[in-house]
Design a protein around this nucleic acid. Structure first.
Length: 570
RNA sequence: UGGGGUAUAGUGUAACGGUAGCACAACUGACUCUGGAUCAGUUUGUCUAGGUUCGAAUCCUAGUACCCCAGCCA
């Protein structure tokens, strides 16, 4: 479970604040957090950090954590997003609840649950002379707001009487004015150095159908007016959010104070950035809408649904969130961390199989033509309890094209002319002859095997350095395998030259599709199941699979020392 | 030119006046029927300049760099 600090015993700065509050009895020892997404897109790995932090913090201190949808903008929000978010949170936190409840959240709420209360409070603030109806157009509001270096000017409508304001506010609510004609604004200080305090808009007139309240309302609270009070209503103690809301905090505190209601402590932390991908919801939406990817759950996407489809496990994502820690420093985590978390998890869980991604045919000349042997292969060397399976062996095999070199480079200990390797779980194999097509490409190898080496060991004690994987040609199950690489071709894709946008940094080779040959054991592999293809990586059965047609995604490759050596040689 | 934040190895994150630690990455080596995994080890760091102190990443002063803020988005 995420949330606690990564170094044993030490606390992250948020937990330090909480422990201090608990010590002083500030919230009677209660710890109540919430994860408050806007349902305007799919959750991504950055949200996972927040989810792990909020839920993890509540669990750590015996408190509660709510899931609340901040659905105050009906123009961008949809039920599809609500559903996907609940689904993703359930999946991410599955199995982590101590009480065995089906849903990980303690309370499920919507800001739209509070529309009536929020409006009542707006009336109360208006009565207090702390809010007014303003007739300025959006352009005029912008012009009179001032700049960071220049104070704003008061709206000419700022001093309307309470009676008039009340009447106009009710009129706004009752649909008497066109969209955008008026707003309700907080009366604070147009000269504040904090622009959020320069009479911010509380309500706008907007005739849009809300995914939950339908056409009941034609005015909608702004996020800044809704968020703090929603936290207050839920008696949240620690309202954890990202850094950009830091200078909104005085505004939230102003509303809470004027209303005289429960005051949560807002704490801001740095959002997650990852190399070789993008995290902006707006940009992710664009990738989906413009078909740069197949959807929100495209395995190249940093979305939770994309990672799930790619083959990431909830445990690996939680471990990742735990390890990256939490601070106010806006850094960028290397993608290798995420990949490492997956490998660490799957190395223990995934059964091993053999699969050949780029088949090269091998004929074993001295192996009986019609003979087939069932050889024993270990399912997971990490856990012998995972057992063994039978793998058919015959005269014609496929091996990996990259496991053969006609002119092997120095240090290469796979197959080459006249060289001997071990076939995993089978026999020693020696390359005798190369067969090429007219263009000079190697298309087949004629080899011999040593029948005394069955199982992979030579009775004469001779050693081979290389062990390669293989599949019996006649038993092989063809499958579509999708080889994924980073979404972006550079570590910081959002850094683009003037006038260009991040699309120029999309990785054109982020997906390569091959027809692979799998060992027959995989024939009926279940959708969503993960395997390690020996020497290649971890693969997950995709939902596009159908009877007789397997589709697999490569979640992550194995660490590849040889590839590193090869690269260095160049 | 205003306000709010943040600076510790390549990347993150600890150390809360007392030996700068951990993880990932990189590099060595051992082991290995996965060039996987595992194990052992190595390299690399306190933004700068002053000051306080027996002692400073930590306290003080002055700088520097980077991020955020001028939606009727969240």
């Amino acid at each position: 479970m995420g949330g606690s600090s990564n170094a044993g015993g030490s606390l992250n700065f948020i937990h330090q604040i909480i422990e201090e509050d608990n010590k002083t009895g500030r919230f009677e020892g209660r710890v109540c957090t919430r994860f408050p997404p806007e349902p305007n897109g799919y959750l991504h790995i950055g949200h996972a950090k927040s989810i792990c932090l909020n839920f993890g913090t509540a669990r750590k201190y015996g408190g509660t954590c709510n899931l609340r949808f901040d659905d105050t903008n009906p123009e961008k929000e949809e039920q599809e997003y609500v559903d996907s978010i609940m689904n993703d949170v359930r999946w991410l936190l599955a199995g982590s609840a101590s009480d065995g409840k089906p849903d990980p959240w303690d309370g499920l709420f919507y800001a739209s649950d509070y529309f009536d209360q929020l409006y009542e409070w707006a009336v109360a603030l208006t009565k207090k002379g702390k809010a007014y109806v303003c007739d300025l157009t959006p352009d005029q509001v912008r012009e009179t707001r001032g700049t960071p270096n220049k104070a704003g000017e008061n709206s000419p409508f700022r001093d309307r009487s309470v009676e008039e304001n009340l009447k106009l506010l009710e009129g706004m609510k009752n649909g008497e004015f066109p969209d955008g004609a008026r707003t309700l604004r907080a009366k604070i200080d147009m000269a504040s150095p904090n622009i959020n305090l320069r009479d911010p808009v509380m309500y706008r007139i907007l005739r849009a159908t809300h995914h939950r309240t339908g056409d009941q309302w034609c005015i909608y609270a702004m996020y800044d007016y809704a968020h703090g009070q929603s936290d207050s209503i839920e008696k949240i103690t620690h309202s954890i959010c990202t850094l950009e809301f830091e200078h909104h905090r005085p505004l939230y505190e102003w509303f809470i104070k004027e209303l005289g209601i429960h005051a949560p402590q807002q704490i801001e932390f740095a959002r997650l950035n990852l190399t070789y991908t993008i995290m902006s919801k707006r940009k992710l939406l664009r990738l989906v809408k413009d078909n740069h990817v197949s959807g929100w759950d495209d395995p190249r996407m940093p979305t939770i649904s994309g990672l799930r489809r790619r083959g990431y496990t909830p445990e690996s994502i939680r471990a990742f969130c735990e390890r990256i820690g939490v601070s106010k420093y806006e850094g960028t985590i290397e993608m290798a961390w995420l990949e490492d978390a997956l490998r660490a998890d799957l190395n223990k869980k995934a059964q091993r199989r053999m699969a050949v991604l780029r088949p090269l045919k091998v004929v074993i000349d001295n192996y009986p033509e019609t003979q087939i042997e069932e050889l024993d292969a270990v399912n997971n060397p990490e856990y012998p309890s995972a057992g063994t399976r039978k793998v058919p062996f015959s005269r014609e095999l496929y091996i990996e094209h990259t496991d053969f070199h006609e002119n092997p480079p120095k240090g290469y200990f796979r197959l080459a002319p006249g060289k001997e390797v071990r076939l995993r779980w089978a026999y020693f194999l020696k390359c005798e002859k190369i067969i090429k097509d007219d263009a000079g490409n190697v298309i087949e190898l004629r080899c011999t095997y040593d029948p005394t080496t069955k199982g992979g060991n030579a009775p004469d004690g001779r050693k081979v350095k290389g062990t390669i994987h293989w599949v019996s040609a006649h038993h092989a199950v063809p499958a579509e395998v999708r080889l994924y690489d980073h979404l972006c071709k550079v570590p910081f894709p959002e850094d683009v030259p003037e006038g260009q946008d991040f699309l120029v940094n999309l990785n054109p080779n982020s997906l390569e599709v091959v027809t692979a040959m799998l060992e027959p054991n995989l024939m009926n592999a279940a959708i969503g199941s993960s395997y390690q293809f020996e020497r290649l990586g971890y693969f997950n059965v995709d939902k596009d699979s159908a009877a007789g047609k397997l589709v697999l995604n490569r979640a992550v490759t194995l660490a590849d020392t040889w590839a590193k050596i090869e690269k260095k040689g160049k």
